[in-house]
Design a protein around this nucleic acid. Structure first.
Lengths: 242, 242
DNA sequence: TTCATCTAGTCATCTATATGAATTTAAGAA
DNA sequence: TTCTTAAATTCATATAGATGACTAGATGAA
């Protein structure tokens, strides 16, 4: 097996990219072990140290996880505390609870120019548009609009929206094999439109926080674009800068 | 030279911690090269691969930077785009400019319980309290309250506040040898008090964004606590989640 | 002086190997 | 069967050394 692509890049980089592509291509399912370091080394014709360096990167990208003595596994969607990795909108008291999730609308539409430019596809390409309301103790917390490339997320059109569950990223992994590993968010404040204030049960012209998120797979291609809006007075957002 | 501390930890970890402590202790100034990998290996009695693994961590922590062919250097405060690493409050148009900075007040006070608990020191310990206004084109953008451990930041009491410049972290590095490498931020929305609205030239009861930041050194000890408030309608915050 | 070349020092990449730690599997004993 | 033990497998740590790329400084030629 050879690692072509770009011979100017070091081997561990090309190997990392090749493994990333194989994971994205669902050659192994989440939870499955990838071949052992020795096997990969033999297969690609590189030393184990080089394999480890490539795997190191994918581990720190969150795509793989190692277990000493067992093997290296494709990360599976976790339902423990780390599921909040991407949920930074905390409840008023500061503790983090899984908000309920209610899908209001799901449809397949052609990409508008804004959606196309965010997802880096052509205008008019088919995308899946979701509208979702997230609540804690039945009080609306966030109104979300979500856009997905149809070609990658075809599978969620077949599911009943009632079976989506409260978190989308595990659904993306389990049903569509799409792993979100990083995201960019931009936060701004706006004034609620009449429709928004009705949906979130606010008085007219209440200030809203708008969170615009672009989520990437491990090849850093954008796979989801979303806009979440919530009442500013209940807003509490935590970020770590490094 | 030996690496005691905790023999259960791997050598590259103990080496990383020892180097981190030496950097924090200002054994080398920002911009200075640390000894070469070969020298460090000989000095600590470990292989170069182990030295590189320790340095790798400090580089990804932002404490060191490598330059192939030249050496490995203690990171110095940069005045290029990366100075925005910790300045996430963008101007209205989205481009990032260095805001002017005006120190309104500087005094040495005993730590209140809130300050002490944030900085993890005892109540009543002496801290330096700064009050600062940041402006773009002479329009107030942020009002900041900042608390620093006095023992670490003694040096900035000797400086004229007019010589602080527009950014504090370079000042911390150059005058006090304190390097900020990571931070936690919590964002909330509040209503401006009368004093705040006067300071920021807003109408009464205008919504404010409050950014509470705890900044850490490379041994992950808190060294600065600050609260920044700015008009919500000019707010634009960018975060990367990984 | 100016420019090109050489050389030594440094980090970057890569290989090869050895030992330890954690886990799984299989064989064997009760 | 059930439990214990041993072996095999896998990742984790560490060493040693080779080659390449880049930099800075010295040398020498024009």
């Amino acid at each position: 097996m050879n690692l072509a692509v770009d011979n100017r890049l070091p081997r561990y980089q090309r190997l990392r990219d090749d493994l990333a592509a194989r994971i994205n291509r669902n050659e192994w399912r989440p939870g499955d072990p990838i071949p052992s370091e020795a096997e990969l080394g033999a297969h690609y014709g590189v030393a184990i140290g080089t394999v480890r360096k490539a795997i190191d990167q994918l581990v720190s990208d969150g795509a793989l996880e190692r277990q000493q003595g067992r093997g290296t596994f494709v990360r599976r969607a976790r339902f423990n505390s780390s599921m909040f990795r991407f949920f930074r909108f905390q409840s008023e008291s500061g503790e983090r609870r899984v908000p309920q999730s209610r899908i209001l609308r799901r449809k397949s539409v052609p990409a508008t120019s804004a959606v196309a430019s965010a997802l880096r596809i052509a205008v008019g390409e088919p995308v899946i548009s979701l509208s979702r309301l997230r609540l804690i103790d039945d009080v609306p917390l966030l109104a979300e609009e979500i856009w997905l490339q149809k070609s990658r997320f075809e599978a969620i059109l077949a599911l009943a929206t009632s079976e989506f569950g409260d978190l989308l990223y595990p659904l993306y992994e389990n049903s569509c094999g799409q792993i979100v590993v990083s995201a960019d968010e931009i936060l701004t404040v706006e004034i609620a439109t009449e429709m928004q204030s009705r949906l979130l049960r606010l008085e007219a012209n209440a200030p809203l926080i708008m969170i615009e998120r672009l989520a990437f797979d491990l090849e850093r291609r954008p796979i989801e674009w979303r806009r979440s809006r919530g009442p500013a007075d209940r807003f509490r957002y935590h970020a770590e800068i490094r």
